Simulated scan of single mutants.
Amino acid sequence: MLPIRRVLILLIPFLASVAAHKEPKTPEEIEVQRALQAAAYHCAPAVEQFTAARKRSWAQKVLAGRPSLPGFDELFASETYADLPGSASDAEQTVMGCSPLQETRIQNNTCVLTPVVTEGPYYHQAGHPVRQNIAELQPGLLLLLDIGVIDVETCKPLPNVLVDIWQANATGFYAGHPVPHPHLVGEKPQVGGKRSGLLSAFPRTIEEETFLRGAWPTDANGVAQFTTIFPGYYTGRATHVHTKVFPKWTVLPNRTFTSDHLAHVGQFFFDDEINLRIDEMHPYSENPIRHTYGRTRNWRDSLNIFEDSHGPEGQYNPVFKLDLLGGVISQGLIGYITMGINASASYDNRWKG
């Protein structure tokens, strides 16, 4: 049996041939997926410690004399994830007196490892701002995202890689894409097949819109944090957040970026139970398809994207682990997830359709 690192090195030449949202079919592609899956098992203990430390450090920050919810800048200050001494009573503490503080228990399905899902039609090749707060005054439920990145070859946090994310707003629209093509107004969703429930992609008609889009580099601890709102849903798709990871990039004068080294394409999801609860909150309750086509549950996600995100043998977990920021859900949520990537992989930074 070859060591995992050796298997990954041997398979790197094949990684570039695995297109986004392409089911592994050839023996080489299947072996790539299985090797990365083995890396997930191999890295699980390290990721457990990684994520538990992130949660503990954040919670200790809140417990250290701050009776109220910290502001965005305080919560995501550079020292938030600095090493802090633990205590035996941590597990008995509560965050703001309401939410139990517990170390994350990460099983062997921790990592979102393989770029097997489509980036979708709403990514902007140019113009994604480099920023942590991507909400841009969009109304919705406060959502703080804590996204860790590890190197599957070393099982160690991966600093200084750019995590790029984008999502729909509370009523299911992406920045720059408010309306369908004129000849497709009134189009009905696809019935049956892998595209069941989908409409044709809306064109980009407002070039300057950038809400709910942004990228930020991981810090020395391999963590990128974002302030956003909980995403809404649209026909045929489960609620999700898109992501790309770039090991190398260049910041442009207008505070956007460019890169020719894409190492990961993926999508994150949320538990259906949380999705259904948030559906009742304003402005999510104003989704224009709520009383017609309604939301698509994870297990019915079109193009099999939710299923593909679990990997060919179902061993990955693309669902955020959510904690309340306060005593009730309306005070906001913080979501944790860890991605394992092979920083040596390189993919075309363009939508495959």
Rank of each mutant, 00 (worst) to 15 (best):
R255I: 00
T258G: 14
T258Y: 05
S259W: 14
S259I: 11
S259G: 13
D260P: 09
H261N: 12
H261G: 09
V265H: 08
V265G: 08
V265Y: 09
V265F: 14
Q267E: 05
F268M: 03
F269A: 07
F270C: 08
F270L: 10
F270N: 11
I274T: 15
N275G: 06
I278M: 02
D279S: 05
E280Y: 02
M281Q: 09
H282S: 15
H282G: 12
P283R: 08
P283M: 00
S285T: 03
E286G: 00
E286T: 03
N287F: 09
N287V: 05
P288W: 01
P288S: 04
I289Q: 03
I289F: 13
H291W: 01
T292P: 01
R295K: 03
R297L: 14
N298W: 04
N298C: 05
W299N: 13
W299C: 07
S302W: 13
F306E: 00
F306T: 01
D308G: 03
D308I: 07
S309F: 01
S309L: 07
H310G: 06
H310V: 01
G311T: 09
G311C: 07
P312Y: 00
E313G: 04
E313V: 13
G314V: 12
Y316M: 06
Y316K: 03
Y316F: 09
Y316S: 06
N317V: 02
P318M: 00
P318V: 02
V319G: 10
F320R: 10
F320D: 11
L322N: 03
D323W: 10
D323M: 08
L325N: 05
L325C: 04
L325Q: 06
G326C: 14
G326N: 12
G327Q: 13
G327D: 12
G327V: 08
V328F: 10
V328L: 13
V328K: 11
I329A: 10
S330Q: 13
G332D: 12
G332H: 09
G332K: 08
L333R: 11
L333A: 12
L333H: 08
I334Y: 07
I334G: 08
G335I: 12
Y336S: 08
Y336N: 15
